[in-house]
Design a protein around this nucleic acid. Structure first.
Lengths: 160, 160
DNA sequence: GGTCTTCTTGCTGCAGTGCAACATAAAAGC
DNA sequence: GCTTTTATGTTGCACTGCAGCAAGAAGACC
């Protein structure tokens, strides 16, 4: 697992979010997928922070823009974004975060969830993934999509 | 991760379940905790298989015994059982499984979820856990309770 | 342009999840 | 017995997530 998984609270988030949007546009264009206004709005809402948002929180934040969307609308947008690897679901919280790492779809990702500030860091877990796959295969199990979520305290919160 | 994580479909489940109940009784007695009828019923419902059950499925299965319990009743029993390490929650499914490994509370556990038969295998993940902790600490993160759930195909289902 | 197909969104409704707040009953401690 | 703690029952509600159908928008093709 590499260095700067965890976004510093004072990082240039403006740029960070714009880069993610740009990446999403490019990604969708390349696949002939449509990044419609609703989908973009949902992604933007998630990109407003690195904390996971519940579906109904997203609805809340979109309520201003173009009228309050129905839950199903947001869920469909989320489904699209997840299918395209632009958004991840944090299972242990029933919530979603924007992906800012443009990793390839199949990579195992580890989510580090700070219990204080709520920020979610995301990083590849190469060695861990391999160990995990190897040992689960040893148990006769064919792993498909490992899910790893760790709750703890991030470096920035610990310094206080 | 060790050998027989995954319960064979033809294992002596009767004995398996009884052992778990006996362990639960001993465990509660040792801690002066009360394994009340409701709690026991919930545990028994979960022990009826190695597949996770949703809270409302549990309600369904308890409906006969002593009248249909209210959701909150089941949730409270589940909370008790989880606090005592007798039941685990499968986050990715919003469901619960009985623990049959009487491991100590803090051990990292890996859940192997078979997408065909639904059985959940559970095993300690010593090496993986250490790798995970080490590398997340390297990212400045103080991990508390890693959660690992892997969907795949179990050895018994693959043989078909 | 017109038509057809496909994709997206809107709408209604509903089942499952999870718990707060308060009232009551049961067990444990003295 | 009485008090305190602990467990259960009841009501109610907010959140999660999606099915099924209808309407609209975008692309493809002639």
């Amino acid at each position: 697992m590499p260095r700067a998984i965890f976004p510093a609270p004072d990082h240039d988030h403006e740029r960070c979010a714009h880069a993610a949007i740009a990446h999403a546009e490019a990604h969708c264009a390349a696949r002939a997928q449509r990044l419609t206004p609703i989908r973009r709005h949902v992604l933007e809402a998630l990109l407003a922070s690195h904390s996971p948002l519940g579906a109904y929180e997203i609805i809340e934040r979109l309520a201003d823009k173009s009228g309050r969307p129905a839950p199903i609308t947001v869920y469909r947008a989320l489904e699209f974004l997840r299918d395209n690897g632009l958004v991840h679901r944090i299972e242990s919280r029933n919530a979603f975060v924007a992906c800012v790492h443009n990793h390839s779809g199949d990579d195992l990702v580890v989510f580090l969830i700070c219990e204080r500030c709520g920020t979610v860091g995301e990083g590849p877990a190469g060695a861990v993934a391999e160990a995990l796959k190897a040992s689960s295969r040893a148990a006769g199990f064919s792993p498909k999509s490992p899910l790893i979520e760790i709750v703890g305290v991030c470096s920035h919160c610990r310094q206080r």
